[in-house]
Design a protein around this nucleic acid. Structure first.
Length: 516
RNA sequence: GCUCCGGUCGUCUAGCGGUUUAGGACGUCGCCCUUUCACGGCGAAGAUCGCGGGUUCGAAUCCCGUCCGGAGUACCA
């Protein structure tokens, strides 16, 4: 039987990392076994509904490469795929009527205030909290009819059997067992007629013929209720797979401090989708061999739910950055160019960097500075594509994110070199610097381009002629003159990329600084 | 409080009763390469497998207890 899985988010907020992983595991599983991946929108809570949420889920997932065979945006044989629409279509009603008719569910007429008081009482008396029957679970039909006739609002609750063991088999945790007396009667239908998650999701999972439910660990405590519901209908439950939570590197709930919670922001930070996927898949799952860097195809092939971890996983931004660097370095020159230009053209990139960091991480570059550098790079890629191409290639192995290309390449394009004070102090004190710069200028004059080899010959020749055994005192001042920095690509490559004219211009400026 | 779940280097993990002096990766540190940084190569430190008992000739691996951490405890999902 082919696998049918579903990713069923509630459209209340943004797509965060934990949800991404669940979506990814669903996707990997479906694609490995030639099954179907279904998107279902669980919008039964009208008070928390966020109209932008669904679009964000779909577009983010699409960006990362997760597609669905069925869903509200693509349709499918089990449409509609939004629970609010399914409710309107009357899909749920026959099912709760059936439960009511056979006495496996009942109407309860407590007001929210009454329930509140009940909970307080339970807490004070150190009793388990929850609705274990109240006065309605076993109320006579006459009493219920009377309350209904009086127009009292009511909910429909599931009648959890008492004095039994409820057992479910979870792929990740094995056999899970509850004493049914500790499980309270959940609301199936709210007073406004909307189904709750417990009801809608189970009915839909059955109707949509879902074979495996991969969901977050926050659902394990509701699992017995879901099992009872499947039993009440006489349906075979799907295989439940409860994935552990993802926490920050300090063990706390994931927040901005740990990188970002919103998946889209990782793209804006210059994280490529392949390493992001690769990294997220590896929190809580490992293929069992030593392979870590994997393509999507390899992930699909290697993925298996019985290798899922039961313990919570931490999100290690450093490792993500490393993986991202590996991916950037693996890009061909053409792909590198395309990837960077797409990144710079993405409106989300600009939006992200134009917003000041609400919680600045010490040592991290200022958003405004990054934005300016990225804009400079983007401009250069259209105005001076040859130079920009060389700059990108020279910095490729030095950056960990796409955003870092901005700072790394900036010295190639500026009208004026921005000198780092430390660099100037360290290398412009050398007495020979001025003469050396002039000599280079003389040698460069009249030429329109120089090869890397020419530059090497020129610099090494000058060193030999002037009695320098080590290249350092020659190379470093020149680097500072040309880039303003002490770090960067190989000097000869960088010189050749800049070209004779630009080099000469910068050497003149450096000589001015020397005199001052 | 109650219910359930989890616990191997700082982090992600391998391990499924003996081949384990517990392996790999990130991070850290050192060396090499080298004009710097990075890349790459080599190497080091780092986990008595939360703790305590048992079972066994033998346990990270099985059992019990204990501690710590997490999730749930809504007419939210």
């Amino acid at each position: 039987m082919p696998v049918r899985v579903r990713f069923a988010p509630s459209p209340t907020g943004l797509l965060h990392v934990g949800a991404l992983r669940t979506a990814l595991y669903n996707f990997l599983m479906a694609n490995r076994d030639g099954g179907q991946n279904i998107l279902r929108i669980e919008d039964t809570d009208r008070t928390r509904y966020n109209p932008e949420s669904e679009a964000e889920f779909i577009s983010t997932l699409k960006w990362i490469g997760i597609e669905f065979h069925e869903g509200p945006h693509v349709g499918g044989p089990k449409a509609p795929y939004r629970q609010s629409e399914r409710k309107e279509a009357g899909i749920y009603e026959p099912y709760w009527r059936q439960l009511l008719a056979v006495g496996k569910a009942y109407r309860a007429f407590e007001t929210p205030q009454e329930l509140d008081e009940m909970r307080q009482f339970q807490q004070i008396n150190k009793m388990p909290t929850g609705y274990f029957g109240g006065e309605w679970r076993d109320a006579s039909p006459e009493k219920v009819a009377e309350a209904e006739a009086a127009g009292k609002p009511s909910v429909i609750r599931l009648k959890i059997p008492r004095g039994e063991k409820i057992v479910i088999d979870d792929v990740v945790r094995g056999r899970l067992e509850w004493d049914s007396d500790t499980v309270d009667d959940p609301v199936l239908i709210k007073a406004d007629g909307m189904p709750t998650y417990h009801f809608a999701a189970m009915v839909d999972d059955h109707l949509m013929e879902i074979t495996h439910v991969l969901r977050g660990e926050e659902w394990v405590s509701s699992a017995p209720k879901h099992k009872v519901l499947f039993d009440a209908f006489g349906w075979t439950p799907p295989v439940w797979v409860h994935c552990p939570v993802i926490v920050g590197n300090d063990g706390k709930k994931l927040s901005k401090r740990h990188g970002a919670t919103r998946v889209l922001d990782y793209g804006a930070m210059g994280i490529l989708r392949e390493p992001l996927k690769n990294f997220v898949a590896l929190i809580g799952w490992a293929p069992g061999n030593d392979q870590e860097v994997m393509t999507q195809e390899e992930l699909i092939h290697a993925f298996s739910i019985d290798r899922l971890q039961a313990s919570p996983g931490r999100f290690d931004l450093d490792k993500l950055r490393w993986m991202n660097g590996v991916a950037i370095r693996a890009l061909s020159p053409e792909d590198l160019w395309d990837t960077v230009s797409a990144y710079l053209a993405d409106p989300w990139t600009k939006k992200y960097w134009s917003t000041p960091d609400p919680e600045p991480i010490p040592g991290a570059p200022d958003h405004a500075v990054v934005l300016a550098e990225l804009e400079t790079l983007q401009k250069a890629m259209t105005d001076q594509p040859d130079l920009a191409r060389k700059a990108l290639l020279l910095e490729q192995e030095r950056v960990l994110t796409l955003a870092e290309f901005g700072a790394a390449c900036s010295f190639f394009f500026g009208e004026e070199v921005k000198f780092e004070e430390k660099a100037v102090q360290k290398w412009f004190g050398e007495a020979h610097a001025g003469k050396m710069f002039s000599d280079f200028q003389a040698e460069l004059s009249g030429r329109s381009e120089v090869s890397v080899e020419d530059c090497e010959r020129m610099v090494k020749g000058w060193a030999e002629l002037n009695g320098f055994e080590k290249l350092g005192p020659v190379v470093h001042p020149t680097r500072v003159a040309l880039t303003g920095k002490t770090v960067g690509p190989g000097l000869f490559e960088l010189m050749s990329a800049l070209g004779p004219h630009e080099m000469s211009r910068r050497l003149s400026a450096a000589k001015e600084l020397l005199r001052a």
